[in-house]
Amino acid sequence: SKICLVCGDEASGCHYGVVTCGSCKVFFKRAVEGQHNYLCAGRNDCIIDKIRRKNCPACRLQKCLQAGMNLGARKS
């Protein structure tokens, strides 16, 4: 099975251009559409994995963007 390129959980498919799990898919959509201005309490290098993905939305969003997630991406 495929793994989420953001948190490493089991992926549910290709979302916004990137193979991700459902949790990261929903997080990314809400983060971008809600125009959240997340700030990292650390050094913008928090570990984002299945267990810690909820700890720092700033670093999670950064990881989504680095993976290439794009709200305008067509479903493939």
Rank of each mutant, 00 (worst) to 15 (best):
Cys4Thr: 01
Asp9Leu: 03
Asp9Glu: 07
Gly8Met: 09
Ile47Trp: 04
Ile48Val: 11
Lys63Ala: 08
Ile48Thr: 11
Asn70Leu: 07
Pro57Ala: 10
Asp45Tyr: 04
Val32Ile: 14
His36Phe: 11
Gly13Asn: 15
Lys2Gln: 15
Leu5Trp: 06
Leu5Thr: 11
Asn37Gln: 12
Cys4Asn: 00
Ala58Pro: 06
Tyr38Cys: 04
Glu10Ala: 09
Gly34Phe: 15
Cys46Arg: 01
Cys46Pro: 00
Glu33Lys: 15
Cys14His: 13
Met69His: 02
Phe27Cys: 01
Arg43Pro: 05
Asn70Ser: 15
Ser1Thr: 07
Asp49Phe: 03
Cys40Lys: 01
Thr20His: 04
Val6Gly: 01
Cys46Thr: 00
Lys29Trp: 07
Gly72Asp: 14
His36Trp: 04
Thr20Trp: 02
Cys64Val: 02
Arg74Glu: 15
Leu61Cys: 01
Cys24Ser: 00
Ser23Asp: 14
Leu61Ser: 02
His36Pro: 12
Lys54Ala: 10
Cys4Tyr: 00
Ala11Gly: 10
Leu5Lys: 15
Lys63Tyr: 05
Gly13Lys: 14
Asp9His: 10
Gly68Ile: 03
Val26Thr: 09
Leu65His: 15
Gly17Ser: 10
Ile48Leu: 08
Gly34Ala: 06
Ser1Ala: 05
Leu65Tyr: 13
Leu39Val: 13
Lys25Met: 12
His15Ser: 08
Ala58Ile: 01
Glu10Val: 10
Glu10Ile: 04
Leu5Ala: 10
Leu61Val: 06
Arg43His: 11
Asn70Trp: 07
Val32Met: 15
Gly72Asn: 09
Ala11Ser: 10
Ile51Tyr: 15
Gln66Glu: 15
Arg52Trp: 09
Arg53Ile: 07
Gln35His: 12
Gly8His: 03
Cys21Asn: 02
Ile3Pro: 02
Thr20Glu: 02
Phe27Thr: 01
Lys29Asp: 13
Lys25Leu: 11
Ile51Gln: 15
Cys4Ile: 01
Ser12Ile: 15
Lys63Met: 08
Arg74Asp: 13
Ala58Tyr: 07
Ile48Asp: 06
Ser76Phe: 06
Gly17Thr: 08
Met69Tyr: 02
Lys29Leu: 08
Tyr38Val: 14
Ala31Met: 15
Cys64Met: 12
Cys59Tyr: 00
Gly8Arg: 10
Gly72Tyr: 08
Gly68Gln: 04
Asn55Val: 12
Arg53His: 07
Ile47Met: 08
Gln35Ser: 11
Ser76Glu: 10
Lys25Gly: 09
Ser23Cys: 03
Lys75Val: 15
Phe27Asp: 01
Gly22Ser: 09
Gly8Trp: 03
Ala58Trp: 06
Asp49Trp: 03
Cys59Ile: 00
